[in-house]
Design a protein around this nucleic acid. Structure first.
Lengths: 232, 232
DNA sequence: GTCTATATCGGGATAGAC
DNA sequence: GTCTATCCCGATATAGAC
């Protein structure tokens, strides 16, 4: 299961695939490109993984298991320290998104590449990808949802879920959309910008999470502004 | 240029392609599927558009031109009413994102389908897609950036750009990630939820935009919390 | 376990009749 | 402008020698 047990060939294939999928997407990347970059034989992918699809699954499994374990460890630590009291929302957000952004800032181990890939994959329509992403996330997301509900007892739970959703979107796009396509800035987002991302993103996410609650009566029409009840 | 000038065949192809690209992605969708759904001949795509790539470009061009014209009209209206005074940030955000969410709420005209496609496409890595997306957006984004700079003179412009970025991500994921993959909720996001999206998203975006500014000194490490200067 | 060679398929694009 | 038939390519996957 751990990386050290992987044969060198397997590891090289996974690393090459990660890079190429990130740059060109799943469909546009061919086994020939992957095996070429990994300097292994074309047949090696099918020998070691069985199929291209199975390779993709294994690739996500190894990273996501690690990522969500770190998140749960961080949450465990917070809950232990709190002795049953509700956590501060900022701490919860930090535990969930901070671990991810940290992974994205890691250039050496390939975490950076993977997080860009992951961000794009959230919106991937293909059935089998959605399936295993959901199952990889279910435990961690369940725990974090519960923590947020407890931390924000006055905010309707449905609202919390939406805001969790929005937060994930902001992060995903910040990491993967940023260098793929800089719509807002002419200057492409470079490596140093990723390092500066963390505090900026955290401020934004917390501001959104604690925003005044919207009025949900009226039909969604631009020009109308949300009424202000306090969220937290 | 307008839809009415399109031959029926062209329009049917564009509509079918929009739906299929949204459901399965660009690469996974074949010309055979598109022409089959549009009930036109296989050769018609190449006759009318020249290639699959050109079809994709035309598809985005027709929707994005319309979308960004509406955005600029809304901004024009605000600026006219303001007689040169800075606009309220909430109005600017409303003009930019409200138009998009409204388009996403439109089930009949296919706007809903297109917005889901657009959200995914922001993170599309392929070169030619990035190129024309950036050019389609440049004018509108430039104008809105300028309006935000003027509306928030005390916030560093770089920070505003980042937050604009985060806002786009939150919206894109809310619209396209929502039904593609519901990571946070077990219940898939249905049509009525999209209608309720607007006020929720606006509150979140404004909360994020006006969040206290982050301290940018320290290295990005989870566990550290951003210092608080006021953003607006 | 790793290679070469190949089977099999389905893609985009086009030629040329109508 | 629309059709049928087909070209040509490159994809995944596998068979079988080493």
């Amino acid at each position: 299961m751990s990386d050290t047990e992987l044969s060198d060939t397997r590891r090289r294939i996974l690393d090459a695939a990660e890079t190429l999928f990130t740059e060109h997407g799943f469909e546009a990347t061919t086994l020939r490109q992957i095996t070429g970059r990994a300097q292994v034989n074309l047949a090696a992918v099918n020998y070691h993984f069985g199929s291209k699809e199975a390779l993709i699954q294994e690739l996500f499994r190894r990273r996501l298991t690690w990522l969500n374990e770190r998140r749960l460890e961080a949450l465990d630590r917070l809950e232990t320290e709190a002795h049953g009291a509700p956590l501060k929302p900022s701490k919860i957000v930090d535990a969930f998104f901070g671990v991810a952004v940290n992974m994205a800032a890691d250039r050496e181990g390939g975490g950076r590449t993977f997080m860009r890939l992951l961000g794009r994959t959230y919106t991937e329509p293909s059935e089998f990808v959605r399936g295993f992403l959901a199952s990889e996330y279910s435990e961690a997301v369940g725990r974090f949802k519960a923590a947020l509900f407890k931390a924000l007892p006055d905010v309707p739970q449905e609202e919390i879920l939406w805001r969790f959703h929005f937060m994930i979107g902001a992060m995903a796009y910040a990491i993967s959309g940023a260098d793929a396509l800089s719509i807002v800035g002419e200057t492409p987002v470079d490596d140093s910008a990723i390092d500066a991302l963390y505090p900026r993103l955290m401020s934004f996410l917390l501001g959104g999470l604690r925003a005044p609650l919207p009025a949900l009566a009226a039909a969604p029409k631009p020009g109308r502004k949300p009424r202000t009840r306090r969220a937290a």
